[in-house]
Amino acid sequence: MTEVLLEKPFDFVALLRINRPEAKNALNGEVRRQMAGHMAALGDDPAVRVIVMTGNQEAFAAGADIKDMAEVGAIELMQRNNHLLWRAIANCPKPVIAAVNGYAWGGGCELVMHADIIVAGENASFSQPEVKVGIMPGAGGTQRLTRAVGKFKAMLMLMTGQPVSGTEAGQMGLASLVVPDGEVLDKALEIARTISRMPPVAIAQIKEVLLAGQDASLDAALLLERKAFQLLFASADQKEGMKAFIEKRKPTYEGK
């Protein structure tokens, strides 16, 4: 079985589906490797402008595969270099949208937080339950969660392991948008299609500057923004966009 399915639902949009329904889409090594490989390839593919990742109605991903970890030693775990697989997702230059139904627990929640936009079902379930099996998050859960929801909400989730619903995640800032469960993927693809029609160079600069500026001083972040803004005036897409606006027509962006 292919653990991660690749689909092309629209022009310029790629859809990645985690495909381990028998294990509630738990993230074993093969899922991580395939997801990292797809992200690297799609990030380099000019025919792809937006990536959506999802699971199924029961689970986005119900955590790491505990059977794959229970007896492993510290050195073997270190030598697996799983952080390099996660880095391939974090470093993807294209916008990544997570469409979340059901469980997004442990590594699944961490994978969701690698996305740029999160569309959650009202009854989705977000959790970092690692403490319940004697460990802690190891793929960004303590860091990305804190940046998303703040210290006090993060501490509560991390130290109790208790889940929050999709509705609660939206209220906390852990989801961009919360919709009825049956509309999650459609809404994520709608957003992806909208973004895919925007100028790719500008979208890439928005993502790069936002992420680079998060942990910089305000002055440094504003400098990054200003230089990226100026750079975009060298693009053909800027000329096309402004010309189309003046001529009252829809622009056609080529990513140049």
Results as ranks from 00 to 15, higher is better:
4 V>E: 01
6 L>R: 05
7 E>R: 13
9 P>K: 01
11 D>Y: 03
12 F>T: 07
14 A>R: 08
18 I>R: 05
23 A>R: 15
28 N>V: 01
29 G>A: 13
29 G>C: 02
32 R>M: 14
40 A>F: 09
42 L>E: 04
42 L>V: 04
42 L>I: 02
46 P>I: 03
47 A>P: 06
50 V>Y: 02
58 E>I: 04
58 E>H: 07
58 E>P: 02
59 A>T: 10
61 A>Q: 02
63 G>P: 09
68 D>G: 08
71 E>I: 15
73 G>R: 09
74 A>G: 11
87 R>H: 15
91 N>L: 09
101 N>P: 13
106 G>E: 11
107 G>E: 11
108 G>Q: 05
111 L>M: 14
111 L>H: 05
115 A>Q: 04
119 V>M: 00
121 G>Y: 10
123 N>F: 06
123 N>C: 07
126 F>G: 11
127 S>P: 08
129 P>R: 04
132 K>Q: 13
133 V>D: 05
134 G>R: 07
145 L>A: 02
146 T>Y: 00
147 R>M: 04
149 V>W: 00
150 G>A: 00
157 M>L: 14
160 T>A: 02
162 Q>N: 10
165 S>N: 08
165 S>C: 05
169 A>S: 15
169 A>L: 07
171 Q>D: 10
176 S>H: 15
181 D>H: 10
186 D>Y: 09
188 A>P: 09
194 T>E: 09
194 T>Y: 11
196 S>A: 14
196 S>W: 00
197 R>D: 12
204 A>Y: 01
206 I>S: 05
209 V>E: 00
211 L>E: 10
211 L>N: 11
212 A>C: 05
214 Q>T: 12
216 A>Y: 10
220 A>Y: 04
224 L>T: 13
226 R>N: 05
227 K>M: 13
228 A>F: 03
230 Q>T: 11
231 L>V: 06
236 A>K: 13
239 K>H: 11
241 G>D: 01
246 I>L: 11
256 K>T: 15
